[in-house]
C-alpha cells in the first residue's frame, strides 16, 4: 500500500532506474537470441577463445596480485599514523578509479615502453592492476580499521602476538569477507578494462587481445564475434560476482 504521493514518485523512479539497468544488462541475450547460429559458431573462433583466455587469466592474476599487495598496504594505512595520510589514501584509492584509463595507458607506454614492456602480457597486467587493485585496497583498509577500532589488535598483542600472528590468525580471518568482496570487484573491473590496456598492451591475438578490445575492434565489421565475446564475458562476470557474493555471505563476524 502506498503511503503518499511522494513515496509513489520515489517508487516509480526506482522502478525506471532498475528497469534501465536490467534491460542494459540482459538485452545482449535478446540480441544473441536473434542471431543465435552465427553467434554460437563465433564462440569457437580462435580470436574469441584467445581473448577469453587472456582476459580471464589476467583478471585472476590481477586479483591475486591486488590481494598480495593490498594486505600489507591496507595494514599500513589502517595502523600507521602520519601526516598526509588522507591525501595518500585519495591518491591510492580514489584517483585510479577516476583517472582517465586512456591517459593511464599513455603514462605507462611512456614510462615502461622503453624497457620492452609495451605490447606484452605483462603490460596487460600492469594496466589492469592500476585501475582494479584499489577496490581490494579500499575494502581491506576499511576492514582493518574496523578491527583496530574493535581493539582486536591490542588484545592480540597483549597476548604476545607479533605482526605475523596478528595478520594470519586475527586480521585475515576476520576480514575474509572484505577480502573476497575486494577481490571480486577487482576481478570484475579487470575483466572490463579496455582503454589503458589498448594503449599500453595493444591487441595482439593470444597475447594481449582481451574481450573488451576484441569487441571494440569487431563490433562494426564482425558483430557475431563481438556478440559472442560479449555474451561469454558477461555471463562469466555475472556468475563470478554472484559466486563471490554467495561465498562471502556465509561469514558474518563483522557487521
Amino acid at each position: 500500500m502506498m503511503r503518499d504521493g511522494f513515496e509513489a514518485i520515489i517508487n516509480a523512479l526506482a522502478c525506471v532506474f532498475i528497469a534501465y539497468m536490467l534491460i542494459s544488462l540482459f538485452y545482449l541475450y535478446v540480441a544473441v537470441g536473434e542471431s543465435f547460429s552465427q553467434v554460437a559458431a563465433a564462440m569457437l573462433d580462435s580470436r574469441v577463445l584467445g581473448a577469453l583466455t587472456i582476459s580471464v587469466s589476467s583478471a585472476f592474476l590481477v586479483g591475486g596480485l591486488a590481494v598480495a599487495v593490498g594486505v600489507p598496504v591496507a595494514y599500513f594505512m589502517a595502523f600507521k599514523e602520519f601526516r598526509g595520510k588522507e591525501t595518500l589514501e585519495i591518491l591510492l584509492v580514489d584517483m585510479p578509479q577516476t583517472f582517465p584509463p586512456v591517459t593511464e595507458g599513455l603514462v605507462y607506454l611512456l614510462m615502461l615502453g622503453r624497457f620492452g614492456f609495451a605490447y606484452t602480457f605483462a603490460a596487460v597486467i600492469i594496466a589492469k592492476f592500476y585501475v582494479s587493485a584499489p577496490f581490494t585496497l579500499s575494502f581491506l583498509t576499511r576492514g582493518y580499521r574496523q578491527i583496530r577500532s574493535a581493539g582486536y589488535d591490542i588484545v592480540a598483542r597483549s597476548l604476545g602476538a607479533e605482526t605475523r600472528h596478528l595478520l594470519n590468525w586475527v586480521m585475515l580471518p576476520i576480514s575474509a569477507r572484505d577480502l573476497l568482496a575486494g577481490f571480486s570487484l577487482t576481478w570484475a573491473r579487470a575483466m572490463g578494462e579496455l582503454a589503458a590496456t589498448l594503449i599500453f598492451a595493444g591487441a595482439i591475438p593470444w597475447r594481449t587481445e582481451i574481450i573488451p578490445t576484441l569487441v571494440y575492434l569487431t563490433a562494426r565489421d564482425a558483430p557475431a564475434i563481438a556478440m559472442a565475446a560479449s555474451v561469454i564475458a558477461e555471463t562469466l562476470s555475472i556468475g563470478a560476482l554472484l559466486s563471490f557474493r554467495w561465498i562471502a555471505g556465509g561469514r558474518k563476524w563483522l557487521t
Binding site: 591490542i154 598483542r157 604476545g160
Partner: peptide, 20 residues
C-alpha cells in the same frame, strides 16, 4: 617496550573476544 613484550594482559571494556 612494545605491547607484545611487556607480559601485561588486558581485558577491554567490550571484551574484544575474537569472533571467528
Amino acid at each position: 617496550l612494545p605491547i607484545e613484550r611487556r607480559e601485561i594482559a588486558y581485558v577491554p571494556q567490550d571484551f574484544a573476544l575474537f569472533p571467528h
